[in-house]
Design a protein around this nucleic acid. Structure first.
Lengths: 208, 208
DNA sequence: GTCTATAAAGTGATAGAC
DNA sequence: GTCTATCACTTTATAGAC
């Protein structure tokens, strides 16, 4: 065996995949370009050649997953709104399910951990990047929550969304590592988890 | 003005307070001993003299706050249990209020951010240290939740506690930075926040 | 596009004077 | 208990050969 964690795909892809794993495990500061390029089986200089800097590599790690994830969220949302009988469950399903499904392919679960880390870091540069590029998604979901929960004041609603977001981010960063019982299929496990999270979020958002 | 962030107290105390601020802002890896000792207005060598290593300094940053915080939590818990009419609200109040009160003195709010960071890091050494030293607190609260929510299966209960913990950790790491409306006193603001969090947690734990 | 070599700065930790 | 000076490394980034 080669002394690499990752030796499939192009150099650029290998770097991105390996970065995801190491950023999840040791953080953005904790994972050095030397560890990363060694694990990816590429040359140290390759990161700067392909991405320009470590900072830009970090951005690309987010972009690779979030572009697809948020597109699927908005797509799912557009399919449940606009009718008279849209429920809170429907909207939450559109938000939660794409993230849970992401947790099932290759390193998707690790990416959710990277996301949770970024969330906790409170780093201004990163927050600005995320809000700039993906803020519209959260705004669209928030508008829908406001429509479905007209009895809540704006501050009250924002409080609850913030709490639910904290809970979901935390839960999803652990999901994928949770042992599912033998005899329970992957599909059923995902379905059960989705129902757990959705019911919790409904209770947290709509309690009297 | 001296070029320091912090120049009151003993050297050891200055290091601890400054470490709390910088660890909250830049993370454990992100804040170097050089930045830290410069900001504290002490000599670089002082950290190793007083604490032995950066790792042990980090442990002391946690100890300084968590010893008091968890003692107050257990004290509050002991005062509400044992009677026939203990409610879920009472138990959650015993868990949440000490943390919110901590957020109000000097850098307490920043410590909650350090805690949220540690939570997201998934670092084994740190998790082991926290579980070893403060795990009994969470176990005692969990036992009380189990007693008050007998209709929930063990896995179901653990799921919900995990989600609530994620929400509270996230919320408290932001608390203290939230602008309170002028005209609302510090005491009232804390009371309102406590009620928010408690009601959310009750809903999340006890929904059907 | 990939390599080696190296620059320039930063890291935790320590020895030894005061 | 505090200081300076320094060791031994690691960090990101880049210049220039292939």
């Amino acid at each position: 065996m080669a002394p690499h964690l990752n030796n499939v795909g192009t150099t650029k892809e290998r770097i991105l995949s390996t970065a995801e794993v190491l950023f999840a495990r040791r953080g953005f500061d904790g994972a050095s370009l030397r560890q990363l390029t060694a694990a990816a089986g590429v040359n140290l200089a390759a990161v700067n050649y392909h991405f320009g800097s470590k900072e830009k590599l970090i951005e690309q790690v987010f972009r690779r997953r979030l572009d697809a994830l948020n597109a699927r969220r908005l797509d799912a949302l557009s399919k449940v709104i606009g009718t008279d009988d849209t429920t809170l469950e429907d909207v939450l399903d559109a938000y939660i399910r794409p993230a849970l499904e992401l947790s099932h392919d290759d390193n998707g679960a690790l990416f959710m951990r990277v996301l949770a880390r970024a969330f906790a870091e409170h780093d201004d540069t990163l927050r600005h990047f995320l809000s700039e590029n993906y803020g519209h998604v959260m705004r669209q979901f928030t508008a829908e929550f406001a429509r479905l929960l007209p009895q809540l004041s704006k501050p009250e609603l924002y409080w609850r969304i913030d709490l639910v977001t904290g809970a979901l981010t935390h839960a999803m960063s652990g999901f994928g590592m949770i042992q599912r019982k033998s005899g329970v299929s992957e599909t059923v496990h995902l379905e059960q988890t989705a129902q757990h999270l959705i019911r919790f979020a409904v209770a947290g958002l709509s309690h009297p």
